[in-house]
Design a protein around this nucleic acid. Sequence first.
DNA 1: CATGAATGAGTGTTCATTCAT
DNA 2: GATGAATGAACACTCATTCAT
Lengths: 217, 217, 217, 217
Amino acid sequence: VPKVSAAHLESRRRQILAAALECFSRQGFHRTTMQEIVLRSNLSPGAIYRYFASKEEIVQAIADERHAHEREVLAAAQGAPDPAEGLRRVATAFLGALDDPEERARRRVGVQIWAEALRSPRIRRLVRRGIDGPRAALGELIRRGQASGTIALPVDPDAAARAMIALFHGFVLQQAWEPNLAVHPYLAVVEAAIDRLLAQPASRSLRRRSRAAKARA
Amino acid sequence: VPKVSAAHLESRRRQILAAALECFSRQGFHRTTMQEIVLRSNLSPGAIYRYFASKEEIVQAIADERHAHEREVLAAAQGAPDPAEGLRRVATAFLGALDDPEERARRRVGVQIWAEALRSPRIRRLVRRGIDGPRAALGELIRRGQASGTIALPVDPDAAARAMIALFHGFVLQQAWEPNLAVHPYLAVVEAAIDRLLAQPASRSLRRRSRAAKARA
Amino acid sequence: VPKVSAAHLESRRRQILAAALECFSRQGFHRTTMQEIVLRSNLSPGAIYRYFASKEEIVQAIADERHAHEREVLAAAQGAPDPAEGLRRVATAFLGALDDPEERARRRVGVQIWAEALRSPRIRRLVRRGIDGPRAALGELIRRGQASGTIALPVDPDAAARAMIALFHGFVLQQAWEPNLAVHPYLAVVEAAIDRLLAQPASRSLRRRSRAAKARA
Amino acid sequence: VPKVSAAHLESRRRQILAAALECFSRQGFHRTTMQEIVLRSNLSPGAIYRYFASKEEIVQAIADERHAHEREVLAAAQGAPDPAEGLRRVATAFLGALDDPEERARRRVGVQIWAEALRSPRIRRLVRRGIDGPRAALGELIRRGQASGTIALPVDPDAAARAMIALFHGFVLQQAWEPNLAVHPYLAVVEAAIDRLLAQPASRSLRRRSRAAKARA
DNA sequence: CATGAATGAGTGTTCATTCAT
DNA sequence: GATGAATGAACACTCATTCAT
């Protein structure tokens, strides 16, 4: 019989991950000591090691959470009437989220994880798994758009999907270095580009979305 | 009077940086010990500390070198007859270089530095300085292109420059995680996109370049 | 009134000691964690601490049990018709028991306890108490043998008793390091030595015992 | 080129081993912290780890030294005119050394190592290697004594060698638990037993040795 | 100028023990 | 009485940096 509820266990887990996220976001993974996570989480070292076997496992858990979140965002964006609209929704969803300071903190940790992936095969696998899903989904959207004529550009759908992801990752980097960098002008460029690269009929709806985003900011 | 020639000093410096680059590329900055750099450079700890005051200073020097290199590439690309052609040349120069395994190793270290920039104001300044130049140059190209009508897209030139950089950085990341990722299909997409986002007259020359790149691969 | 029966309490105690013995035998006292004893005993940490105030107290209890057992073996062997026969019986009883794998496991823990006695005055007292009884008994046997002429060797009875114990402890050590070491050849040497060190009349009965031991093996 | 002489390096090594031996002798291997060895050796943690890769390696080095020492003692004792005299010399050399307080301290650590051998295959190998040599040498002595008629007891030479070793190890244990235990009475018993177990001619010389030992004490 | 032995503060992690439930 | 989640002091070991030679 469990002594405490599953909810309590889950809440402890989140407590640790939240503390770690904050520390990692500020100082990076390697400069954050377990002691700092201990302090910030108001737990003891032993308690933390009851939930995570190592510091690296905390990073992995954070990476995992990110990708679960991204899958959700992606799934939500995929219910679009046509591929072109789907691309716009994805772009808006991912870039738009960067207006939220908390999301930006998470993305800063994401940048650390990107670097960590170069060293740790385990984390690299997690990162790739997080990218492969979106890439396949975007590639499929583009393929469908090309087939139906909505997308006029005759390019490799997979490479085009990579470009979409690069536009997002690249901006995450720039915003990580310039915390006050506004999302909107960048989003406008991305939307305009998507718009221009698709067949003409889509243009109007894009401008509407763009204005809406400006209003939100 | 200096006891040893400036050339000797410079050669020692390069010896250290080369050793460090190799270590960092393999294991990342934090997992690389000074002892490893000592071993690989065939120098002593004391010798290394004569050239660099700290491990971090080695990272800074590497970051510095990168940006000097980028400025050169950028300068070479800027002597283009028209802005659109300039953009294409920049894209080809930066992305094309990623076909070289050595450049890829350097870029892997670049990814580490990007992450490190989140933590160290000094490195962040270096990274931003390395980005700001290209961004300004690209922004100016786009502005001139818009003014002359070569570039039809009515978007914020600075944000558009950011997108260009993001397309590059984002691909660097993806290639860091997938070392065998080919540059060509991606470059083709970027060129096609540039082509499409510019006024029609530029189209032909783009296709020529694209075919040439394919032939190279 | 006690809530649970004394039998239940005693059974719990034995459950813990058995689990501890197995762990200690495998990995030694210091490398065995309470958690491992918890797992093997199918109890909870709290439950174990209700029966033993500390890990060390478990070791003490095991040492205690050992000595109670030895006292029994010794008492059984003391009912011999003459001192010489008594010595032989003691040797056979203690060494012969080492044919049993379980006894060997217990002796392995005994070796740990011997080492632990160097550090802990409490355990040292237990070990000495366990040795002093046999030593006095053996010494008395030898003294009586010398007085009655059965034992011809004119040596210090106490030192001779120590030698008997050393012959046993020393073999326990060797068997601990070489688990497959057979008892019989060693027992034969000890019996032959006892035989030779006693006056002649005892010889015949010794040979009978020796043959019996060989038959058992 | 080495920066310091090999002698200096060796002296540092001995400094560490001496400090460790003292700590281990007092508190045992597991209760001794590296910090204590650091303090007692007047070195820094880093310095110690330059000479020994781990705490366990220090134990191994101590075990190694012991066996080298034992080989020497054994070799010296083997140059005896006849096997029986050889046995006596070995007994006197090994037991006699226990009169020295420093040797006793080393033997206390030896007891720790005996226990540690049950857990660590590496240390077990060292211990066995240290025992196998003497056992073979003693066995050979006994075999030769039996062949030449000096040793009258018709027993397995290997088992008899084990008994000799057990007489020594067993006494080391008893002295470890009773630091003031005198060697002489025990040595007298051992010598008398050797004497009695050999053919008569040897008796006289043994008594002389025994008296000499008494005089020394 | 170069060396490399030495430093020592700091690291991630463990585990005997406790106590609220 | 029993539980097992939590504690936190302690541990072995690392590594950027220094400085006597």
